[in-house]
């Protein structure tokens, strides 16, 4: 930040050393995200992307003994943020994953709680956008099964989420957001090039084979068949 009396990073360092807890909110503050993409000088509180090369150093601990608590996401979900703050206040600690994120919110995947999960299980691909049916993982680049978040468990604005409204998950809670070609799934011989963590290619192929062979027919139909909608009585 230009033009301030004291450099911004100095202010942050001073405050961090006085603080019981240090919480980074949002992907920019957590990993660098968009501003760091074209500027090598930009580092965040404890990380730069996934490396612990941040402003406060890799061994930083706040006065109450925790590293920087990272609430990632672009944007970060307000409820994950507020509940983490409250938990820190009342319990004084919170379990974190290897990227400093509270496990309670980031141990889950965006996929967990997605209302398209049956389509995923039975490998029914969405052929088009703008429909309620089909899974977006196979063609439209959805990162749901690969992205740590509680987006479909603690809904956005209390009502919905990206995948619930037909958008692929773009992986905005991860260090590599924004990746390239966000609306397209990269395929290797027809199989998604990236599989969910700890799923082997062999397991995936076997499961997919079974699923595709035995897909329940109802998953190939529209949820609501418009033609069958009862026409109102004309008066």
């Amino acid at each position: 930040m230009k033009n301030l009396e004291k450099p911004f990073y100095e202010i942050v360092r001073e405050l961090a050393n006085l603080s019981d807890f240090v919480v980074a909110l949002g992907n920019c503050a957590v990993y660098g995200n968009i501003p760091a993409l074209k500027d090598e000088k930009i580092v965040e509180l404890q990380f730069r992307f996934k490396e612990k090369e941040g402003l406060l150093g890799k061994d930083f601990r706040s006065k109450r003994g925790l590293p920087v608590v990272n609430i990632s996401g672009c944007p970060a979900h307000p409820e994950w943020f507020i509940n983490t703050l409250l938990e820190l206040k009342h319990r004084g600690k919170v379990p974190l994953d290897e990227l400093g994120r509270p496990k309670e919110f980031y141990a889950y995947f965006t996929h967990d709680g997605c209302i398209r999960v049956q389509y995923y299980e039975w490998k029914v691909e969405a052929e088009e956008l703008g429909t309620k049916e089909g899974c977006l993982f196979y063609k439209f680049g959805c990162r749901g099964p690969l992205t740590h978040s509680s987006c479909n468990r603690i809904l956005w604005n209390g009502v919905s989420s990206k995948t619930r409204s037909g958008q692929p998950c773009f992986g905005c809670t991860e260090f590599d957001f924004p990746r390239e070609n966000l609306f397209e799934t990269k395929l290797n011989m027809g199989i998604p090039a990236e599989l969910p963590p700890e799923v082997s290619l062999r397991a995936y192929i076997m499961m997919a084979g079974v699923a595709k062979t035995f897909t329940p027919k109802r998953l190939k139909r529209k949820l609501i068949d418009e033609d069958n909608e009862e026409a109102p009585n004309e008066t």
Binding site: C74, P75, L129, G130, T131, K132, W156, N157, G158, V159, S160, S161, K162, T163, R164, S165, G166, Q167, F170, C172, F183
Partner: peptide, 23 residues
């Protein structure tokens, strides 16, 4: 209301060339 129509606010991407993603 916005999230009901577009999935979330802020930062949804529900408008794509050719229309919208939500149904």
């Amino acid at each position: 209301a916005l999230a009901t129509l577009a999935g979330q606010w802020p930062h949804n991407s529900y408008a794509v060339p050719g229309g919208i993603t939500s149904d």
